[in-house]
Computed example of a mutant assay.
Amino acid sequence: MNIKIITDSAADLSKNVIEQYNIDVIPLQVFLNDQQFEDGVTIQPNELFQGMREGNVYKTSQPLLTRFKDVFEKYAKEKTSCIYIAFSSGLSGTYQSSVMIKNEVLEEYPDFDCEIFDTKCASVGLGLVVLKAAQLAADGKSKAEILEAIDFYAKHMEHVFTVDNLEYLYRGGRVSRTAAIIGGLLNIKPVLNVEDGKLVPIEKIRGRKRVFKRMIELMEERGNNLREQTIGICHGDDEEGAETLKIMIREKFGTDKFYVNIIGAVIGAHAGPGTLSVFFLNKEAK
């Protein structure tokens, strides 16, 4: 049975990967004043990051409900079995909306075979889960085998990241105005992760080099067999920083498999230019 893999643009997957595995991606929305865009469709990450540097303030929202309905109805009519691998319900209402639309489609197409999975993951953390599922689907694995892998990867996926400027986290309501100002003056870089699908700060570190070192330490503390993993790295229009992090990881753990991509517009609107993140599998299920 051919299993169709569906996700949303918060997975921050490259166009090459999307095309290679024929993944259906539902775009989340980005707003600039009264202008409405779709992530990866009518606004690209580089455009958003440049706008943020120029002072633009972007807001985001879950996908249009019609996007879900169009995709789900298409596969319902084709009688195609599908899995929608969703952005964390702790960070967006995307998952809840997909469930609602699936139930609507089931009223008209009661045989619609679609599993919806709340990964509690974001950005390339979600992307690596989707990529694994797409590879298994391409290899002809059963739906049960793919769902088992999704569950494992989602439960073991670590997200460790830092932002270059606390101002963007302040705009998103993640830190106070005072913390943003003081952080900027003292060159403080927060290190954060995702726990139970929500952003949680780990600590604050002064200086970019120390942040990189701490991220590597966290990988060593939490990671499982890092040499054999595909390590995800995502950046906020900072290819140089991503390459530096990649080199440090390779030197420390001997890793030679990486998935590196720019952060998409929806995640980027909250994290800002200069954000750097690393994703890997941990030792214990979350």
Rank of each mutant, 00 (worst) to 15 (best):
N2R: 14
D8N: 06
A11V: 02
E19M: 00
Q20I: 07
N22Y: 07
I23C: 07
V25G: 01
P27V: 11
L28Q: 08
F31Y: 14
Q35G: 05
V41R: 00
Q44F: 15
P45F: 08
M52G: 08
E54K: 13
S61V: 00
Q62G: 06
L65K: 10
L65A: 09
A76Y: 03
A76R: 03
K77F: 08
I83M: 09
I85Q: 00
I85G: 00
L91D: 00
L91W: 01
I101E: 03
V105G: 00
L106T: 02
D111N: 11
D111A: 07
E115V: 12
E115H: 08
F117H: 05
K120F: 13
V129F: 00
K132H: 13
S142I: 04
K143R: 09
A144R: 11
E145Y: 12
L147Y: 08
E158T: 01
V160D: 10
V163D: 12
V163E: 10
L169Y: 03
R171N: 14
G173E: 10
R174N: 11
R177G: 06
I182L: 15
I182V: 15
G183E: 09
G184Y: 04
K189A: 03
P190Y: 13
L192M: 14
L192H: 05
G197N: 12
G197P: 07
L199N: 01
I202A: 06
E203Q: 15
I205K: 00
G207Y: 07
R210P: 07
M219E: 05
G223A: 04
N225V: 06
N225H: 13
E228Q: 15
H235Y: 05
H235W: 01
G236E: 02
D237A: 15
D238Q: 02
E239I: 14
I249Q: 02
E251Y: 06
K257A: 11
V260W: 05
I262C: 07
I267M: 12
H270Q: 12
F280N: 04
N282E: 14
